[in-house]
Write a protein that binds this DNA or RNA. Structure first.
Lengths: 117, 117
DNA sequence: CAATCGTATACCTATAAGGGAATACGTCAA
DNA sequence: TTGACGTATTCCCTTATAGGTATACGATTG
């Protein structure tokens, strides 16, 4: 099997930096494709392709405005990612790294001398 | 070009569900590979391969314990993801979807009648 | 209708993933 | 040492990416 498709979920869609950039740009408001092309400095087809992926995971909504297509952010599918990551938040807030080191040392000491209390 | 390697950063590493599962399991404490194999119901080589990816992006640390290898979570590389996602938090908290719809309608009205106030 | 603009899609290529299966390697026990 | 155990690595295969380039398509303008 190959890697899961980028359109599988927001996790995969957002793994690509360009797509995160696009979302960041859309966070400031609705924009037509050419705006993004300018701001990103990418070729138009690539932008359209990234937008397709974002559309398929519902991270953006489109609206037809004459011959332009206005893209708008829909951040809701990002919530599950944020929720999942929140579980780990304490790990970097409470200097768990340090605690881990201490635990390691303890374990190694335990290993050397069996104490009976 | 192909998709960025899974070892490029935590974003890519964590896009794979199994690897998220592994991190979830390690969140409860240090574990040897076979533990994970049991808990995940995967073949041992696949688990080792996933662990390799997680190691390369520094999401896990290893410690040799006899012939076992104890894996421990290192959540710090997840912080950037959490930070990035936090920017969008308000979007799903404040019913922005609704606001967006309203904005859309406003825009369309603006479009129809040019008002001068 | 023709020309042009804004955007999407098709096609090609190089790259690598992830699962399966086999095997290599280091450690410990007999 | 031999053998078993725990784990990592290698090889094969299928699939899909992301970029480049060309082109198709709908809407608007003249």
């Amino acid at each position: 099997m190959a890697r899961a498709a980028t359109t599988t979920d927001a996790f995969n869609a957002v793994a690509e930096p360009r797509r995160r950039q696009i979302l960041d740009l859309l966070a400031t408001g609705e924009r037509p494709v050419n705006d993004l092309v300018q701001l990103l400095g990418l070729a138009q087809p690539q932008v359209s392709k990234h937008l397709r992926v974002l559309r398929e995971v519902d991270l953006v909504h489109v609206r037809d405005e004459g011959r332009q297509r206005m893209y708008r952010l829909n951040a809701e599918p990002l919530k599950p990612l944020h929720d999942w990551l929140s579980k780990y938040e304490q790990s970097w807030n409470k200097r768990f790294d340090l605690m881990d080191s201490v635990l390691d040392e303890l374990k190694e000491t335990e290993h050397d001398n069996d104490h009976d209390d």
